[in-house]
Structure formats: C-alpha cells, structure tokens
C-alpha cells in the first residue's frame, strides 16, 4: 500500500513560539516530539503538546524504550508511554534499535547491539511486548554506531528485515545514521538500502553529523550534508513516498533555515515522483 509523502520537523524549544503563536500554522505536514519530554503528569510541557496537536499531526519519537535490553522492557515506562499515546493519538510511535538500560543502570545513550540470533530474539520479544502494551505498531529506527562486534551473525539491514518479519513492526530509516555507520564500519550504504524491507519504511530522518578523530559522530548539529541528500534520493527511489523530517538537536538555527532544508527534501521527492 502506498503511503503519502509528508514533510515534518522535530519540535524543539527555540521554536515553540513559531509553532504555537504564529497566526498561520508552520507549513509542515507533521511534527515529531521526543516522547520522554512529555511523559510527565502535567504542567507546561503537556499544555504545549496539546496546543501543538491542535495544529499538527504529531509523531512520538522515544529514546529510552531500550528494545535491546537483555532483561526486557520496562513495564512502567510502557504504561507511561501508553498514556501519552492515548492522549496524543500520534501519527507514529518510534524508538531505536539499541539498548539504553540494563538492570538498574540507565545509560541514556543509544548503545549498540551485536547483530546475533540471540539479540534478534531479545529485540523481537521486547518489540512484541511494546506493541502489545501500546496497542499499535511501532517504528524502529536504525542507530548510528561507533562500535561493531566481531561476533555478529548478520548485517544490520538483515537484522531489521528479520525484526520486521517476525514482529510486524515498521521502520524509521535514518539516512544520516546509515551514512555515519557505513563510514565508521566500512560497509556499503547502497547495499544497506537494497537490503532493508522497503515496504516497511514509514518515516525517514535527515540530519547532519560531525567528524571526530577517527569516526563520524551523529551530532545532529549541522545541516544535512550533500552525501546524505544523495542517499536520501536513493532511499526514496527504493521506498517510494514516505514521511520525511529534518532532525536537529543542537546548534538549532532559526525555523526558517530548517524549513528551507525541508523544502530541499520536498524538491528531491518531487524529482523522484517525476522520474
């Protein structure tokens, strides 16, 4: 089934006034928020989300579900997220292919998984539990990573393909993360795009990165670079119309700059449709 092209932005504090107080709604098809920032009992954050939701469809993007935890997902976390889902009726609910928690330790970072059969079973069990608790299909995002484990049984894209097949989950494809991880680990980004289950991709993230001493770092503090735009065009050719958004988390520019980047995504998508 074909999905519509949609173009959105992540909601960040410097842009609250643009989204809430301008006479005309910001020209986006959806807004993505970080779920955890709004999984609170009340106060201004929930009021802001309610008002944004009155103007735009909202996607919930999480960073702490930890679907890769060997000791399972946190039921209390899922209950909090379910309450937010029920209140927002989001376009998508997503989190990352990673782990952030083990036992009582919360790293609050997106830590890498070994792509083994054991890890696949763990992630499938956790995604099943999450989808049951949330009463809906989740989108799982490919992470940037800085460490690859020697003992992997499969590639990241084969892991995602199997995850989708076993759990029915869908994908949030972060094109910048593919570029960063491909560069860091020396795999072929084109093979990655060819290997993912294209029909399961519902959303795309576009972002920038930084160059560390030996590795690319997924910093989300720069405009989308040309190689990522090129990979985006290639991804669109593979997955077809899809919801696309610019993800900027640091060095956040005026909203107009991000809207201009989003227009660039629209132009690339229009060219793909024409082709």
């Amino acid at each position: 089934m074909a999905h519509p092209h949609r173009f959105g932005l992540g909601l960040r504090k410097p842009h609250y006034a643009d989204f809430l107080e301008a006479a005309a709604p910001v020209p986006v098809d959806f807004v993505e928020v970080i779920s955890e920032n709004f999984m609170v009992p009340g106060g201004r954050p929930r009021d802001i989300l309610r008002r944004v939701r009155e103007r735009h469809p909202v996607a919930l993007h999480g960073v702490s579900m930890s679907v890769g935890s060997a000791d399972g997902v946190d039921r209390d976390y899922l209950q909090r997220l379910r309450a937010l889902v029920d209140a927002v009726e989001p376009l998508f609910v997503s989190d990352h292919l990673c782990w952030t928690r083990f036992g009582d330790f919360q790293s609050h970072d997106l830590l890498p998984l070994p792509y083994t059969e054991e890890a696949l079973r763990t992630v499938c069990d956790n995604v099943d539990a999450a989808q049951t608790a949330l009463g809906r299909t989740m989108l799982i995002e490919n992470p940037s990573s800085y460490l690859a484990f020697d003992r992997a049984d499969m590639t990241e894209w084969a892991f995602l393909d199997a995850l989708c097949a076993r759990t029915g989950c869908e994908l949030l494809l972060d094109v910048n993360n593919i570029f960063v991880s491909a560069t860091n680990h020396g795999f072929d980004a084109h093979a990655y795009l060819a290997g993912i289950p294209a029909a399961r991709v519902r959303q795309i993230h576009l972002a920038g990165h930084s160059r560390g001493e030996t590795l690319l770092i997924d910093t989300h503090d720069k405009p989308v670079p040309d190689p990522v735009w090129a990979l985006y065009a290639e991804a669109l050719a593979r997955v077809g119309p899809v919801a696309t958004m610019i993800e900027r988390d640091d060095a956040i520019p005026p909203l107009a700059e991000l809207l201009a980047e989003l227009d660039h995504a629209r132009a690339i998508a229009a060219l793909r449709v024409a082709a």
């Binding site: 060997a70 083990f102 330790f105 070994p114 083994t116 054991e118 484990f149 001493e213 590795l215």
Partner: peptide, 28 residues
C-alpha cells in the same frame, strides 16, 4: 547479550579495562 551489556555498563560507569578488552576495545 546480558554479559555484553553488563560489561558495557562497567565500561561506562568505571572505565573498567577488562570490560573494554572483552568488548573488543577501540576508539568507539
């Protein structure tokens, strides 16, 4: 997986060199 995640936690919390070795080391 559980042993790997326990080692990763030891690395982050205490920069444990043995854990780093078992994780394969490296700049990452």
């Amino acid at each position: 997986l559980a042993a790997l995640q326990a080692d990763f936690g030891r690395w982050l919390r205490a920069e444990c060199p043995d854990a780093a070795t078992r994780l394969g080391g490296g700049a990452g």
